[in-house]
Design a binder for these strands. Structure first.
Lengths: 169, 169
DNA sequence: CGCGTTTGCTTGAAGCCTAAACTAACCCGC
DNA sequence: GCGGGTTAGTTTAGGCTTCAAGCAAACGCG
């Protein structure tokens, strides 16, 4: 039973010790994933304990705040999630009185979502805290490193986007 | 209402156009998140269509393959997920005949998970494909960029880890 | 020895998420 | 106008995930 090391071991550490091949890319991917997961988990935790909300709810409010009234489909595309997902999320947020639905008279298939006044207030509080949390988590990175990282991630995104394109074609 | 732009818009593009403050870090975080999400979504999709499996299942098999027999708790720590999560995952994988549970005679609270022969074969196939997919997605990045990105992500991880530490103390 | 604590795992309730099937509304061309 | 195709949104089934509560085994210490 391998007395089993008890300290927390992150996925990357556990996985990265493999032989040769494309292991280079694999290590990069694991580190990217681990980093994103660490931040995401912490943000979810803080949203839960400090605001009794969740990341998807917060994200949906953020879309409405920044892009004005949106259809469900618009939110779905922006959040990169499925249509059905947004339906459920919107239902819950509406029930909580943070957003409201309004059917588009000109095209009755569509409905636009918008923040209620209460939703605006609530999101403003959450958003300010959120911005601070992110700043705090990345504070250990120099400004130059942040810029460099941002640039390299841009290239990574382009690489991935390109690969996805080719696949479709 | 708002004829609504129809092209896909990723979260980052949609969110990053905000005023001043700690927006620097926020933009970095959004790009990091978007990049990771793009890869993850594609990997999930390919696992589903090519192997009729899911990412968490694959990850659990990967842990067992690379770290030998593990307790549920060991898997939980390595995968950075909750205990209850692993219970359900293990139940499904056991039902599919890919792993087996074995109670530790010396400590009957513990049970070790290990791959069955069929699990080993299945994972070997999936793993080879997975490695290729990752290489493909990051192929547009030069070796130098990959190294630099890996290094910067290491610093980001350290920054985040540090912030989490302080919080606890 | 015995009792309180810790540890490993399971359960239950709730929410998130997807793909696929479906409904309703719109559009287009005849 | 009307039928075929498209688009917006909902529903359903299934899986993933968490937290919190709970149970049983083991530990530790008086």
């Amino acid at each position: 039973m391998s007395p089993d090391d008890q300290r927390p071991v992150d996925a990357e550490t556990a996985l990265a010790d493999a032989p040769a091949g494309h292991k280079d890319e694999l290590r990069l991917w694991l580190r990217l994933l681990t980093t994103a997961t660490m931040v995401e988990t912490e943000i979810r935790r803080r949203l839960r304990v400090q605001f009794a909300t969740t990341l998807p709810r917060f994200d949906l409010l953020a879309q409405l705040q920044r892009a004005g009234p949106l259809t469900l489909g618009g939110v779905s595309r922006r959040m990169m999630v499925s249509n059905g997902n947004v339906t459920g999320l919107a239902t819950r947020l509406e029930a909580e009185g943070l957003i409201e639905r309004r059917v588009n008279a000109a095209d009755r298939r569509e409905q636009s979502l918008r923040l209620t006044p209460r939703g605006k207030r609530e999101f403003a509080r959450q958003s300010a805290a959120h911005e601070g949390w992110i700043a705090e988590l990345f504070a250990g990175l120099s400004a130059a490193d942040r810029v460099a990282l941002h640039r390299l991630l841009g290239r990574a995104k382009a690489s991935i986007g390109g690969a996805l394109q080719e696949e479709t074609q």
